[in-house]
Design a protein around this nucleic acid. Structure first.
Length: 349
DNA sequence: AAAACGGGGGC
DNA sequence: GCCCCAGTTTT
């Protein structure tokens, strides 16, 4: 039995029951694929359930506000996925009469859909022979065939795509694609795979050459930068809070936060003045302040470490833009902020 | 070609 | 502390 049949056979035995495997509705397949980008099934599953419940059809999603969609996406990260999801939902609902594009060539034109997702939807929903290459597929192929081309190099991306395309089961592309990904997720795991029970153990090059721990090869990643964030939790005389939308490009676009001032270093409790508040909205306002956390709350992202302090600023005047404390949780917010809101005892103010 | 873009989990 | 995750978009 060859690679393709062994993997497909393994899948028929070991596949997990997942909600998006009970349907070929392209809307649900698409939703699941976007949610699962750079996200493990375990983490994405509850979000998938929530979206299907809240937005049963693409028209429901198209008619929703971005605010509501981001709120439901809160905590999942990579928020451009949610913004693109909304953009594409509106496009399909209103420009394409709600008819989902049914082939790779059209799918890849959609916002938020790249090579992987176009292949996944085309194959799973429409049975097109389009090979998927995700992190699992890179790992399985690199190990089984003993390929040390860096998987994130231009040449490697082409090489693995071609190899996957040569292996895909043309009679059942949907099953094969899901099989090889599931095989990578459960059997050919990144760390400590149990190769003794692997159906491919007799022909796996990495196993014969003791390269399982070495493959796949990945080019060096970019280094992580450190930033110092100072959030000003501004409370006015009505016990209302300032909460702002991040409108600029970059992380957390269109999510909400307390007024933020970056500093060059981690500030001490007596270094509040270094924030140069006379240049800000706080100029001309009378206020008292206190540092909430003496040690930085460190929020780690894949490409930056945010060292964060929260300053409680009580302003001796009413503020028009401030919102009631109770309504804070209506707004989509980064985990860093929502964690603070859920932890801080506003009642003591 | 490289960097930006989140957050959670495994070891 | 480092790596990985059903990747895509921007620079």
């Amino acid at each position: 039995m060859d690679f393709t049949n062994k993997v497909t056979n393994w899948y028929s035995i070991h596949k997990r029951e997942l909600p998006w495997r009970k349907t070929t509705n392209p809307y649900y397949i698409w939703l699941s694929e976007i949610i699962l980008q750079q996200t493990q099934v375990k983490q994405g599953l509850p979000y998938y359930e929530a979206f299907v419940t809240q937005y049963p059809t693409i028209f429901d999603l198209a008619n929703a506000s971005e605010h509501a969609i981001l709120k439901l996406w809160q905590g999942l990260g990579y928020y451009s996925r949610a913004r693109n999801l909304h953009t594409t939902a509106k496009h399909i609902a209103f420009n394409l009469n709600g008819i989902f594009p049914d082939n790779y060539k059209e799918l890849i034109k959609l916002k938020g859909i790249g090579d992987y997702t176009a292949s996944a939807i085309a194959s799973i929903a429409f049975n097109e022979v389009a090979a998927v290459v995700d992190g699992n597929v890179y790992r399985v192929l690199a190990r089984y065939f003993g390929i040390d081309t860096p998987i994130n190099s231009t040449i490697g991306i082409k090489e693995f795509k071609a190899l996957a395309s040569s292996l895909i089961d043309k009679e059942q592309p949907a099953t094969f694609n899901q099989a090889i990904m599931e095989f990578g997720a459960q059997q050919c795991k990144p760390k400590n795979p149990d190769c003794t029970i692997c159906p491919l153990k007799d022909s796996c090059v990495a196993l014969q050459k003791n390269l399982v721990d070495v493959l796949p090869v990945k080019l060096k990643k970019t280094k992580v930068s450190t930033k110092y964030f100072n959030f000003l939790v501004c409370i006015d005389t009505n016990k209302n809070i300032l909460f702002e939308k991040r409108t600029e490009k970059g992380i957390w676009r269109n999510l909400y936060q307390f007024p933020l001032i970056e500093s060059e270093k981690s500030l001490k409790a007596d270094e509040f003045y270094l924030l140069n508040l006379k240049d800000t909205f706080l100029n001309n306002l009378e206020f008292d302040y206190a540092l909430y956390n003496t040690t930085d709350k460190v929020h780690k992202l894949s490409h930056q470490h945010l060292h964060t302090k929260f300053w409680i600023v009580e302003i001796n005047a009413p503020l028009k833009e401030a919102i009631p404390i109770k309504s804070l949780n209506k707004y989509p917010a980064p985990v860093l902020i929502s964690d603070f809101i859920n932890t801080f005892n506003f009642k003591n103010l």
